[in-house]
Design a protein around this nucleic acid. Structure first.
Length: 821
DNA sequence: ATAGCCTTGAGC
DNA sequence: GCTCAAGGCTAT
């Protein structure tokens, strides 16, 4: 056995181990059997030798094993593992609390060994003879290798697009299980445990679902392990709180794994998953009445039309509509449904159920358009591994995207050369379906544009394409939108056109054109405008002319092959792809507001949850990965607060967060107070920053640049990886902004300073308001531990950003109103 | 009234 | 026979 294993040790010092998974299958599924874990019998020997150990699949001859992530022979750092110190003392079976950790171990997984960082955060873990600090756990997490890209590809191939015979079974089961609800989906298949390699995807997906609402609390998931891939929900819901899970399982050959990253989740995402309803931002459930919308807007639209409801807006008919307030003004909600493209005629007068409607071909074409459009920016992950540079595909055929004559099969012909390519297109396509980040203000611009007279009649497909493009497209002023180019050749003048036919016009109560998307220009965006105008030298003076009549055109010049080529090959576009889903921060806020505690607890909970997102994002960055582990830790401790503030700032700019959140104490906490970790003194300053950036036309590119510049904090510029990252970001950013970045940079510096002030403030609570500090549960908050560590470590002379050393001027943190709640 | 889940059935 | 976008049902 030992001889067989040696090849997997590579050139690491040999750490002997003898592990027989078969001999130690735990009898109780609720028990953690350390003895059966790779740590169980190897620990002592490894201690003597080295802490590193490659863990091979237990059965290489298995066909499935070849496809499993086990084939990547992951590296375990046993010394860093939380089991390391405790293991020798736990010779026999050690159990988790079944009540708390039922979600960790499924019935289908006897012998499942699992260590859950979330449990540690909650203080629930049993194995804590010498519990590692939260920072230790972070170190473990960072030290874990990334999964190999082959795994992703195999998963994709099994999900099948187009399906092949080999994937039919899994696919069909997925489909059938879509209709199994809740507990029915729960795995109770004991045979799964007996045949650990029964499913390739089983071994590939270690994602563990957690209810979105359960941020920071006990996960209610069904647990990792066997057959998760057959539960779409497990892949679908990006979840908070479970991302830190690291587990080892008997059933899949003994691989220490980490949670899927956002990127991987995106790659794995099934249709519409993660997409946001263009009306309210909720999760899209499919095409409804002509548009990809959520279930609630579908129902709302149906009820409204079927019952011929007439709503009256009590305000100015321009109420904001999002998931949290969609019930508030049905008038504006319905208006937005129509504006976004829902079709009243798709509601059947005869109420006949089932079957297909006349929009079938529209949906199909729309899908094809999206697919083709997004194929243009496909990045194929080379099978050789994650270190290879992605290759960007670009095809001139995509210039015809959204043309009504586009052959929907074009992409298939073009890309079906290899399975991997085709399948990856699917995931990219899915990922870009109605971008979750399309802000309402952006939508408004779009609707302003499409509602211009004459446009609807001749450009139905174009409208659909336009409406369904990503936020990135619009925010970046890069067209979706070859059809747009056509349109632009004939500048519009509102005064010369009449409104076109629309079902709305025939609907009593909605006959006023005033109910259409308002024609008022959006606030002038001088910076963005000048940048884009200067970029599009090929579009001639027509741009200037259009500036007067359309709020959109000047920001969205007709694309040239050059500009499009530049965009789709730009580094910035690649960087943007790594950003977390915009809805992430919304979910964090919504979930955290339910956590018991006052405003500071709310803020710290939000920060803790977002920190996990930030860590995953950083961990997946190549340059970040080039840093030594200690430097990674230091960098994160320095930069997390700025990244966090940037995230909330971006969400606020684009209207993704409500201004205040009511927490369990009944208090309304402003987003600013949360963003600043409870430091309300500077909330107005921050609000001002938000407004200024909004008025400057803060785009996703800018957000991307801010986030990277925040992570790779200037104070760490003496590291090669950091300085390289910073210069790359600045260069890419300057390219897309045509060097007009100085205004943004000065505001970024303000944000950076604010974030550091906020951290100092929070730390000051420890001495100034010990009770409040204690109420924040510093023992279970990674954020607080980071702050504490930064504050108590020796000052780094190379840093330009002072570490928190002493509580600042106490007057600054006078008891203001922090204690009101 | 809302919104999540369920049933239906034409088209593929 | 499968898909998926219709309508229906029902707990809240």
């Amino acid at each position: 056995m030992e001889e067989e294993q040696k090849p997997f040790l590579f050139d690491k010092p040999e750490g002997n181990f003898s592990f027989d998974a078969n001999s130690s299958a735990a009898s109780s599924p609720k028990h953690l059997n350390l003895e059966s874990s790779p740590f169980g019998k190897t620990n002592i020997e490894v201690k003597k030798e080295d802490s590193y150990l490659f863990y091979p699949p237990k059965d290489n001859s298995s066909e499935d094993a070849d496809l499993s992530p086990a084939s990547s022979y992951e590296l375990l750092n046993l010394k860093s593992s939380p089991f390391f110190e405790t293991n020798s003392e736990v010779k026999e079976e050690k159990s988790f609390k079944s009540s708390e950790d039922a979600n960790l171990i499924t019935d289908a997984d006897p012998g499942y060994a699992c260590f859950d960082l979330s449990s540690y955060l909650q203080g629930n873990a049993e194995v804590k003879e010498k519990p590692p600090s939260l920072l230790d756990l972070l170190r473990v997490y960072l030290s874990l290798p990334l999964l190999k890209s082959e795994v992703k590809e195999e998963i994709i191939s099994l999900e099948g697009f187009p399906r092949d015979n080999s994937s039919d079974n899994a696919y069909a089961e997925m489909e059938s299980q879509r209709y199994c609800k809740g507990k029915k989906k729960k795995k109770s298949d004991a045979s799964s445990a007996k045949t650990p390699y029964s499913s390739t995807i089983t071994n590939s997906i270690t994602d563990t679902p957690t209810e979105d609402k359960n941020v920071g609390s006990k996960a209610t998931s069904e647990g990792p392990g066997v057959d998760l891939q057959l539960q779409p929900a497990s892949i679908q819901s990006p979840h908070i709180g479970s991302r830190w899970r690291i587990h080892w399982s008997n059933t899949d050959g003994g691989v220490l794994r980490r949670q899927m990253t956002d990127v991987e989740r995106m790659v794995l995402r099934p249709n519409h998953e993660g997409e946001q309803c263009p009306v309210c931002g909720d999760r899209v459930s499919g095409y409804h009445y002509g548009l990809l919308t959520c279930e609630s807007c579908k129902g709302f639209f149906k009820r409204t039309v079927q019952n011929k409801k007439q709503y009256q807006c009590s305000a100015d008919a321009n109420c904001h509509v999002d998931r949290t307030c969609r019930k508030r003004c049905p008038s504006c909600r319905f208006q937005k449904c129509l504006t976004m493209g829902m079709k009243m005629e798709a509601v059947r007068a005869d109420r006949m159920r089932g079957g297909r409607n006349k929009f079938g071909s529209f949906y199909k074409r729309d899908r094809a358009h999206r697919l083709q459009r997004n194929a243009m920016r496909v990045t194929v992950i080379p099978s050789s591994g994650i270190t290879s540079q992605p290759q960007t595909f670009y095809t001139p055929a995509d210039h015809q995207v959204s043309s009504s004559t586009t052959d929907q099969n074009t992409h298939i012909h073009y890309y079906d050369q290899t399975k991997v390519k085709t399948e990856f297109i699917k995931t990219e396509y899915d990922a870009h379906l109605q971008s979750p980040t399309l802000s309402s203000s952006t939508n408004q611009q779009i609707s302003d544009f499409i509602m211009r007279p004459g446009y609807l009649v001749d450009h139905q497909d174009s409208i659909a394409a336009l409406l369904n493009t990503t936020n990135e497209d619009h925010l970046l002023r890069f067209p979706t939108t070859y059809p747009l180019a056509e349109v632009k050749q004939e500048p519009f003048d509102y005064s010369e056109h009449h409104f076109v036919h629309h079902p709305l016009l025939e609907y009593q109560g909605y006959t006023s054109t005033a109910n259409y998307a308002p024609m008022m220009p959006i606030p002038t965006v001088t910076t963005a405008q000048s940048v884009v105008t200067s970029t599009s030298s090929t579009t001639t003076g027509r741009v200037a002319e259009q500036t007067r009549t359309s709020p959109v055109l000047p920001l969205c010049p007709a694309p040239t092959e050059k500009t499009v080529d530049h965009f789709y090959n730009s580094n910035m576009a690649e960087m943007c792809k790594t950003l977390p889903d915009d809805s992430q921060i919304i979910r964090i806020f919504n979930a955290a507001k339910g956590i018991k505690g006052e405003a500071h607890s709310f803020a710290v909970t939000v920060a803790d949850e977002n920190l996990k997102v930030i860590v995953d994002w950083a961990k997946n960055n190549q340059l970040f990965g080039k840093l030594q582990l200690d430097d990674q830790m230091n960098l994160l401790q320095t930069s997390w607060s700025t990244v966090h503030l940037v995230d909330i700032t971006n969400a606020m700019i684009h209207g993704n967060l409500s201004p205040t959140y009511k927490i369990t104490t009944g208090e309304d906490v402003s987003v600013g107070a949360v963003a600043l970790l409870g430091y309300r003194l500077y909330v107005n300053t921050w609000n001002d920053i938000v407004n200024r950036l909004r008025n400057m036309g803060f785009t996703k590119f800018d957000y991307c640049a801010f986030r990277f510049l925040a992570l790779f904090d200037q104070s760490m510029d003496h590291f090669q990886a950091v300085s390289t990252a910073r210069s790359r970001v600045l260069q890419a950013w300057a390219e897309v902004r045509c060097s007009f970045v100085s205004g943004f940079m000065s505001i970024f510096e303000e944000i950076r300073r604010l974030s550091h002030d906020a951290v100092r403030y929070l730390w000051s609570l420890q001495s100034n308001f010990p009770e409040l500090w204690a109420s924040l549960r510093p023992d279970t908050s990674l954020v607080l531990e980071m702050i504490k560590t930064s504050a108590t470590r020796p000052t780094d002379v190379t840093s330009t950003v002072p570490h928190i050393s002493v509580p600042l001027q106490q007057t600054t943190y006078a008891p203001v109103v922090y204690m009101t709640s």
